[in-house]
């Protein structure tokens, strides 16, 4: 059967090289355009996360552009059908580390409060249990204080909080992106969220 097929379609097998090349090049160009379009659909999300990983809007813009430049340059290393969002964010977080952010100023971590309910308890004891209701939360914690508190968390903890709580990544995706075990994602997330609440308590109830 194999031999028969070969015989029947023999002419296409021995097709002159340039035609095969042209088809391959056209197919590759189509794949590349599809890749670029798919990648650009995530631009909003990439920016949103980048903005919270670095200090300023300008730095975030630079980081997003670097991420896309590298992604477009190495599009061949992406395997179609796999998680492109995680692939892009892995580039982003690696670039962010390369930018030397790790050695930038990081405020010393306060010793962590024992309780996950720390902020809730503080608000409740200063303003009563009603302070825990939705409208009161929004009233008492300003948007600025949240952004500020987030920026103050140590980067290794912030990365995880930003990916999971702002970027909507699963623990598994965050582990893949940051190249750390899932257990580490969970413990950093835990610490990061506590640190955030502690900062908020300090800012709000100071």
């Amino acid at each position: 059967m194999q031999a028969l097929v070969k015989q029947r379609y023999g002419s296409s097998v021995s097709e002159p090289e340039p035609a095969v090349d042209a088809r391959r090049i056209a197919a590759e160009a189509r794949n590349r355009v599809r890749f670029e379009e798919e990648a650009l659909e995530f631009a909003d999300q990439v920016y949103r996360v980048a903005r919270r990983l670095v200090g300023s809007r300008e730095e975030a813009e630079d980081l997003v552009q670097e991420t896309y430049a590298r992604a477009f340059r190495s599009w061949r290393s992406y395997t179609p059908g796999t998680n492109m969002r995680a692939w892009l964010f892995r580039i982003l977080t690696n670039l962010n580390v390369d930018r030397g952010r790790r050695v930038q100023r990081t405020p010393p971590m306060q010793p962590l409060e024992e309780s996950d309910y720390y902020l809730a308890n503080k608000l409740a004891s200063s303003a009563g249990e009603e302070a825990l209701e939705q409208e009161q939360v929004v009233e008492r914690l300003s948007q600025d204080s949240i952004v500020h508190a987030l920026a103050e968390i140590q980067p290794q903890f912030r990365d995880v909080v930003v990916l999971v709580d702002i970027g909507d990544f699963s623990y598994a995706d965050a582990a893949e992106i940051l190249d750390i075990p899932m257990g580490t994602v969970m413990s950093r997330l835990h610490r990061g969220r506590r640190a955030l609440k502690q900062r908020l308590a300090e800012e709000t109830l100071a």
């Binding site: 949103r48 809730a120 249990e129 939360v137 987030l150 702002i166």
Partner: peptide, 21 residues
């Protein structure tokens, strides 16, 4: 109450942190 607080806080953190491109 703490559950509702933590849930609200998470939603609000996300809302506050999101900045348009």
């Amino acid at each position: 109450r703490r559950y509702r607080f933590e849930e609200t806080l998470r939603r609000y953190v996300k809302l506050s942190a999101v900045e348009r491109m």
